[in-house]
Amino acid sequence: MKLLKLAPSQRVQGRWLLHLEDGSLLRVGENEVVSFGLYAGMELSGERLEELCAAAALGELKERAIRALSLRPLSRRELVQKLTARPRPTRDGKERKEKAAADPAAAEAVADWLEELGYLNDAEYAKSVVRHYSAKGYGERKLRDELYRRGVPRDCWEEALAEAQDPEDEIDQFIRRKMRGEDPRDPRALKRTSDALARRGYRWEEIKEGLERYGAAQDDE
């Protein structure tokens, strides 16, 4: 198969367009142009063309992975799921060609590559998740739920959970906001407050101690 024309893409920086003699168009990255020594007029055997197509597909998948991580941090499982997800149809029912599902083995290979480069790190990602939700006033159960939902390996959990803020101040502030204007001895108000704290992932022991501190503070006033 002869490569009739090799031209840079006008839309995507770093991408090259290969015009083949059968009328097909192949998009490759700069790495493929260099590593395969591509030039106009070059003859590509069937085997060499298959290798080039595979390399181009892997390069495009790496670009997709990097773009995904540039939007927000992800766990390894989240990234692999994003790369292998089937494309959702557009409003007119057509699939988005640029988001075709990747082969799982290729997605795992890209994840390995990103881990080697340090762009994908489940341990550091777990810590950032814990810090984020802890700062928003959520308890340990919620933090564990988030780590599980995001596919973070369990061997990263305990070190990450050590990054959580001391819940005492958050619980005390939440109780004061929730109980404002309520009788501090009203069992219904106390139950509403304790239920709200439980939904935020705090343990009953932490909630009970917070309510006791609140009651003691009210008695002192």
Rank of each mutant, 00 (worst) to 15 (best):
T84R: 13
A106S: 15
T90C: 14
L190Y: 04
Y133K: 05
W204Y: 09
E95W: 14
D145L: 12
A198S: 06
K5R: 11
L17G: 03
D172H: 03
Y39L: 05
K191M: 10
L120C: 04
S194W: 05
E47S: 09
A65Y: 00
R188Q: 06
Q13H: 10
S35D: 07
K127F: 02
R131C: 13
R188C: 04
E221F: 13
L114D: 06
G151V: 03
R72E: 15
A135M: 11
S9T: 02
G215C: 06
V130Q: 10
A68E: 13
V34Y: 03
N31A: 12
M42Q: 09
G29T: 08
G181F: 12
L26E: 11
D219Q: 08
A164W: 02
E43N: 00
G93V: 15
W113H: 12
R72K: 15
G151K: 04
L71W: 06
E140L: 06
Y214N: 01
W157Y: 09
G59A: 09
S45V: 00
E212P: 01
L79I: 11
E63H: 05
W204I: 06
W204D: 04
R192S: 09
S45E: 06
R86G: 11
R141D: 12
D145F: 13
E32V: 02
D103P: 05
N121Y: 08
